[in-house]
């Protein structure tokens, strides 16, 4: 396997008295696709939000692309620019058109010339098949289109890693497929991906490894085939029987 790009060692996090992450150890290699699943409240979202430091961990070590994340990290913005994220609620900027959503960060953060940024944005929007919506505002698009726009926006920063925080949970069933298709294409293109999702079909098709979390701990981590065919822990078996 190729080089390790994300390293989490003994990561612990508390919200007040409540411990959300307990001794998380997780290594992700370049171009690896990992699906994180588990019941709600198990800390999946917090786990991936720690990777771009939208949440701060209190104990342990997180190293992303050679940079350790801590209070002392100076250029946290630089690290975040390398880590794209897609959210459950899309979080597009409603005051900007889809195209401007996609070019805002490249222009202002990466200092890409406007014209170049727009060309790249149109290319990404074509990839997710909503180039014809570029001039519209987010409020005028369907949920599926918005989520694909959000994916394009993240990709416009040309990140090394993509994080997905339940990207299809807020979508109507008929729109889930169009978003998953876009994600599958991205996976085939060789992106490093960590995906929190309940879409087990997607996991089976794309993931190299599946991580099952419960109560802030990683209960089981296995190669995809093994995870589904031969789960080891009782908790995983129960979860799979409920969700499949």
């Amino acid at each position: 396997m190729s080089e390790t790009i994300i390293q989490m060692k003994e990561v612990n996090k508390w919200f007040g008295d409540f411990q959300v992450l307990k001794d998380i150890n997780l290594n992700v290699a370049e171009k690896q696709k990992i699906v994180v699943c588990g019941p709600s409240g198990s800390g999946k979202s917090t786990l991936i939000r720690c990777i771009n430091r939208l949440e701060e961990h209190q104990k342990g070590q997180i190293i992303v692309d050679g940079n350790e994340l801590s209070d002392k990290t100076k250029d946290i913005e630089k690290i975040r620019a390398e880590v794209g994220m897609v959210f459950q609620q899309f979080n597009l900027f409603p005051h900007l058109s889809i195209l401007d959503n996609c070019t805002l960060a490249p222009i202002w953060v990466k200092k890409t010339p406007k014209k170049q940024a727009e060309e790249l944005a149109m290319k990404q929007l074509e990839q997710v098949q909503i180039a014809d919506q570029a001039m519209k505002y987010p409020g005028q698009l369907s949920g599926g289109q918005q989520q694909r726009a959000a994916l394009a926006r993240a990709l416009c920063m040309e990140p090394k890693i993509m994080l997905f925080d339940e990207p299809t949970s807020a979508l109507d069933p008929e729109m889930i497929k169009e978003v998953l298709d876009a994600m599958v294409n991205l996976a085939k293109a060789g992106m490093t991906m960590i995906v929190v999702t309940h879409e087990m079909g997607f996991a089976k098709e794309v993931a190299d490894e599946v991580v099952f979390m419960d109560e802030g701990m990683i209960v089981e981590k296995a190669k995809t085939k093994e995870f589904f065919d031969n789960p080891k822990s009782e908790r995983t078996k129960l979860f799979l029987s409920q969700i499949l």
């Binding site: 771009n52 913005e77 975040r80 994220m85 959210f87 609620q89 900027f93 805002l104 990466k110 959000a150």
Partner: peptide, 15 residues
């Protein structure tokens, strides 16, 4: 403003 707007901006590397 919803917190998601802050998250989205930060995740794109904005200061």
């Amino acid at each position: 403003l919803p917190r998601g707007q802050y998250d989205a901006g930060k995740s794109l590397g904005m200061s």
